[in-house]
Amino acid sequence: MWHWLNQKFLAPKSFYANSAKLIPWIALAFALCFSYGLFAGLFIAPADYQQGDGFRIIYVHVPSAFTAMAIYFSMAVFAVFTLVFRVKVAAIGMSCSAKIGAWFTFLALITGSIWGKPMWGTWWIWDARLTSVLILLFLYFGFIALQSVIPNQQTRDRAGALMAIVGVINLPIIHYSVIWWNTLHQGPTLSKFAKPSIAPAMLYPLLAMIAAFLLFYALTLLLRMRNQILLREINSQWVAELIHE
């Protein structure tokens, strides 16, 4: 069973072939979700009664923060496959995910800060969500830095995998400690930024945007992984055949 799965899907060659079939569908689904989410978020969803049209930043901020967290968890899944089952493709997926995840975290920080300016009157407040996203960015940087200093390919994969697992065990503890820290020190100014009571007309664009962000992650992940697979399998026969076609 495992052998079959490995041969059919997880070997670099078959993964390269299968992902080519998958990519157009992911791209199509992303285009649909993203265009609906953008249009509905900007124009159809009603303005929030407290924050006016400023709340529309939620449609890019919350999905990017959510996706950034999700990518870190997906890295841990890849890490388990790397360490336990020695799947080559998983290690490639893990290091590609880190770079995409760092970008999404950066995006969540920037949009959160732009949202904060009109709502709090300042670009940055040590609010629970922004703070834990900032820490997540540091975790991503740590992972990327670790992988960039290790010369040996196999050691790099396995060291990164272990770091991702350590990070993912700690992430919930860090997240809840930051939330707890924030409620301890919370001032009255934050109440305006409380979660807007979500009406369905506001919720559907948000769900579409979350789906679109996740699909974009899948799309760029597959594209990046395909590049890395080619580079790592540089000495194998199938890559030579592929290039000469």
Partner: peptide, 22 residues
């Protein structure tokens, strides 16, 4: 993890500090 890395510099703090936050 980085025991064999020659030029460690400030890698260890970058790697570990976020885990110290709680």
């Amino acid at each position: 993890l980085i025991v064999s890395v020659r030029t460690q510099g400030l890698l260890l703090p970058i790697l570990i500090m976020p885990l110290y936050i709680p």
